[in-house]
Design a protein around this nucleic acid. Sequence first.
DNA 1: CTCGCACTTCAAGTAAGCTTGAAGTCAAAG
DNA 2: CTTTGACTTCAAGCTTACTTGAAGTGCGAG
Lengths: 140, 140
Amino acid sequence: MSIGEVAAATGLRASAIRYYEDAGILPKADRVSGKRRYTSETIDRITLIRFCRRLGMSLADVRGLLGATGASRAKDRWRQLVDAKLVEIGGLIKAARGVERILRESRDCDCVTLASCSFLIDERAKPPPSRRRLTGLREV
Amino acid sequence: MSIGEVAAATGLRASAIRYYEDAGILPKADRVSGKRRYTSETIDRITLIRFCRRLGMSLADVRGLLGATGASRAKDRWRQLVDAKLVEIGGLIKAARGVERILRESRDCDCVTLASCSFLIDERAKPPPSRRRLTGLREV
DNA sequence: CTCGCACTTCAAGTAAGCTTGAAGTCAAAG
DNA sequence: CTTTGACTTCAAGCTTACTTGAAGTGCGAG
């Protein structure tokens, strides 16, 4: 199949498929007179990549996963990744719930005028903001 | 106070404070022989900004909020922002829980070998990935 | 033969929120 | 007077995951 057909089948753009190849996420494609030719295996692979991405994994995660040779090794890596992601997501959910609570509580507060607002007073006591951002997720 | 003192008091870097000024989030600072001078009002303002950022608001959100003139107007904007953020966070938590469930279920699946895995088969049926990423949060 | 389309490569652009570097200024300390 | 340290501006860099654009190639149709 051509890159255009793979793109149509997977919902990615052709440019993204080329990018994945450059990034080492997809193997170098065979060429027929300079043009990339694929088999349905590529579609399966892209489907797996898309699945992982949807679950909030980075391309680096995916690269690590697909680099695994042999099914059992791959399965180990998969479990490791999943376990790490579960911890991350747990943290994310916890953080989100904290934010939700504060938002609700501060909704009718005078914070904005900065007049002795308990939230901002609490805020002063907190350590500097962490540089680390929690992982962004896509809708599942 | 100097920019360095404000930085120390708020946990931001001086460069970030200058950036906020350029970005219109902080008002143009008074100068004494070319150097910015601040009052504790600035610290309060930065504290508010930091509070908002911690809750997952963008600098654009904050700019809109602080642009409000008069306390009641500001309060209205605050409530609007909070309501919008609550919807967003609700979506984020829902998405995160979905991901959590799928991760758990797929943990011990044969997905990685692509051998008739129900998760990947489901994946094939899904629409192309949404470009939209859910808001990243910081820890609260 | 020429048109048009899908493809090719490579470089650069995009988003957000800052940081970093280079080069210069200023005031107080030694 | 010189050094030191904090400050100044402006431009460029960082990160991730791609997209976009420019310029060129290959192939089937008319």
